[in-house]
Amino acid sequence: MIELNHVTKMYGNVVGVNDLTLTIDTGAYGLIGPNGSGKTTLINLLIGHLQPTLGSVRLFDSVPADDRRLLRRIGLCPASDVLYPNVSALEWVTYQVRLHGMERRHCTSRAEAALETVGMTSSMRRPMGTYSLGMRQRTKIAQAIAHEPDLLILDEPYNGLDPVGRNDMTRLLKKWTRNGRGLIFASHVLQEIESVTSSFLLIHGGRLLASGTADEIESLLADAPQEICLVGADAGRLIHRLADVDWVDAMEWNQGKSELRVSLREPLAFYECIAKWIHDDGLGTMQLRTPDGNLEAVFDSLLRRHRGESS
């Protein structure tokens, strides 16, 4: 679906994205990164609005900037707001479908179907100037899907949606991916990504730090420094054991909570020892809390490693 080969985009002396190399098949991917990380630049490269300063971009085996026919296969929901106050959602979405080259007689029915999908049927003939932010967001999604593209690219699609709208959006995107279509879903809110797909692309400072599922990346980080927490009445009795090894950086015992926090330089060494220590010392049952494998934990671990904080 997408192939990037050493792609760099410069804005004068400022790096937008830096030496991105990536090949991904059709599927659903969360594009994760903080504001200013390069997500929007990457999206604009994929749709051909920008050309790389160095390297090459291919989408469905074509160059986006050279083959405008690719736009027919892409549905884009930008982060920026869209508001033509005196135009109805039906008129606007119909016009957008027409721009994709659809026959005029099919455009209105496509627009109506898309607006129904996003829950805008009852309001689609009202001027968009009367819409709330959430309604405008639903309308943007409708224009992105109305021409039935092969790849849907969403930049912060949950912006402005209330809890009901967020739930509807999640169900829509899950159904979209189940139908075998491509999805690139850019967000800096990790829970939004996790509700739709477990596959992600982590971008920071214009660089791709990781790609894959949360479990795959977590397995790569299994022996990276991390903090664990032992909870139980006997947790404090492990302090003498941990004090005798050289792969513990710090410990903190909270007697009121019966909680022992341990910063580990070599977590795998700890996991190999803990069961034996509990058995040999006759300790009672305790709870072991570790990084939970969700995207937020993975994201934080990768950023620490990128900044050199784990070395």
Rank of each mutant, 00 (worst) to 15 (best):
T170R: 15
R105L: 01
G165I: 12
L264T: 04
L83I: 10
P225H: 12
Y271E: 03
G30T: 02
D19I: 08
C273R: 15
G182Q: 06
Q51I: 13
K175M: 10
G101V: 06
A269G: 13
H188S: 11
G101T: 09
R126Q: 14
T23C: 08
G165H: 10
S311R: 13
L22F: 06
G38E: 05
M251Y: 01
E156I: 05
N167Q: 14
E194L: 08
D249A: 11
F185G: 00
D19A: 06
V262L: 05
S310A: 12
V87R: 10
T40S: 15
G206L: 02
K174N: 14
M135V: 07
L268G: 12
D244S: 14
F270T: 03
H6V: 02
I145Y: 05
W92L: 15
I239H: 00
R237S: 07
E216T: 07
L152Y: 04
N18H: 15
L20F: 11
R136C: 09
A114F: 03
Q51H: 03
V298N: 08
A235P: 07
G33Q: 07
G284L: 03
V17G: 03
L42N: 09
I145W: 02
L183P: 02
Q51T: 13
P267Y: 06
G119T: 12
A144R: 06
G27M: 05
I153G: 08
L209Q: 01
L59R: 02
T53I: 01
A144P: 08
R72N: 14
E227Y: 00
M128L: 13
R265P: 00
T117Q: 15
E227G: 01
I141M: 15
I153H: 13
I24S: 03
L4G: 03
R69I: 04
E272L: 04
S301Q: 14
A269C: 09
Y84S: 04
G12F: 08
K174F: 06
D162P: 07
G16H: 09
A79N: 12
Q137G: 05
A186R: 02
L288S: 08
K39Y: 12
I228F: 00
D249S: 07
A142V: 11
P163G: 08
P163A: 04
A275W: 02
I184A: 04
T108A: 11
P64R: 05
G205S: 03
F200I: 02
P52M: 02
L161G: 04
C77M: 15
G119C: 11
G256Q: 02
P64F: 08
K175P: 00
V196D: 07
N159T: 15
R138P: 09
L209S: 04
I239G: 00
D215E: 15
Y158S: 15
R171N: 14
A65V: 13
P291Y: 12
E296R: 12
A89D: 11
S62Y: 06
D223M: 08
T170H: 10
G180R: 05
L71A: 12
L42E: 09
